[in-house]
C-alpha cells in the first residue's frame, strides 16, 4: 500500500511520518501532484496558522488537487480545519470540502485547548492542541466538549478528518491510525 503524507511545510509532518513508521509503514512525503494521485491513501497533516497554510497550498496548486482526490484522505488538526469552507484564523477561504466555518473558541476556559481529552461516548484519550474548532455538523462522527460541543472527527465520502493528533495520542492514537490504514 502506498501512503502519501502531503508535504507542504506543516509542523507535524515528521511526527506523522514517525507514527506510521512505528506501525511498520513508511509513507512518502510529497507535494507532487503525481505522487499524491498515485497514492492508495493520503494524510493531510497540519499544525500552524490557517492563512499561512492556505497560502502555501495555493502556491503549490494543492488547493485545487486536494478536494478532487478520490482516495481515502485523513486530515489531521489544521488539516481538518483547512478542509472546511472558511476559517476565522486569518479570515481565510479554505478548501470547502466540508461546508463549515472554523471558529475561535470563546475564552470561557483556557485557550488553546491543550491536552488529553475524551470524545463523547468513548473511553479513548486523544491529544488535542487547538484554539479554533469545527462546529458540530451533519458530518460529525466524533464530538468533544470543551467550552462548546465541537467536532473531534468528521467524515464525508472519502474524506475524513480529526481535530486531535493521533500521531501523538499514545496507544489510542496508534490504534486509530492503524484502522485508517487497514480500513
Amino acid at each position: 500500500m502506498k501512503l502519501v503524507v502531503i508535504n507542504y511545510g506543516a509542523g507535524n509532518t515528521q511526527s506523522v511520518k514517525f507514527a506510521f513508521q512505528r506501525l511498520g509503514i513508511t509513507p512518502v512525503l510529497s507535494d507532487s501532484r503525481e505522487e499524491i494521485l498515485s497514492a492508495d491513501k493520503i494524510i493531510f497533516p497540519g499544525v500552524g496558522h490557517a492563512k499561512a497554510a492556505m497560502e502555501v497550498l495555493r502556491e503549490k496548486g494543492l488547493h485545487v488537487l486536494i478536494p478532487q482526490l478520490k482516495q481515502p484522505v485523513l486530515g489531521i488538526c489544521l488539516g481538518m480545519q483547512l478542509m472546511c469552507k472558511f476559517s476565522e484564523e486569518g479570515n481565510v477561504d479554505c478548501l470547502g470540502i466540508f461546508n463549515e466555518s472554523v471558529k475561535l473558541f470563546e475564552p470561557k476556559l483556557k485557550v488553546p485547548h491543550i491536552g488529553w481529552n475524551k470524545t463523547d461516548g468513548n473511553d479513548d484519550w486523544y491529544y488535542f492542541v487547538h484554539s479554533y474548532y469545527v462546529p458540530q455538523n451533519e458530518f460529525t462522527t466524533l464530538s468533544c466538549n470543551y467550552i462548546t460541543q465541537f467536532s473531534a472527527a468528521i467524515q464525508k465520502e472519502n474524506f475524513s478528518a480529526v481535530q486531535f493528533h493521533p500521531e501523538k495520542s499514545g496507544q489510542a492514537g496508534e490504534d486509530f491510525l492503524k484502522k485508517f490504514i487497514e480500513a
Binding site: R22, Y127, E174
Partner: peptide
Amino acid sequence: VERIAATINIP
C-alpha cells in the same frame, strides 16, 4: 530530538 520523535508517541 529526531531520535526521540521517532520513538515516543506522546508530545
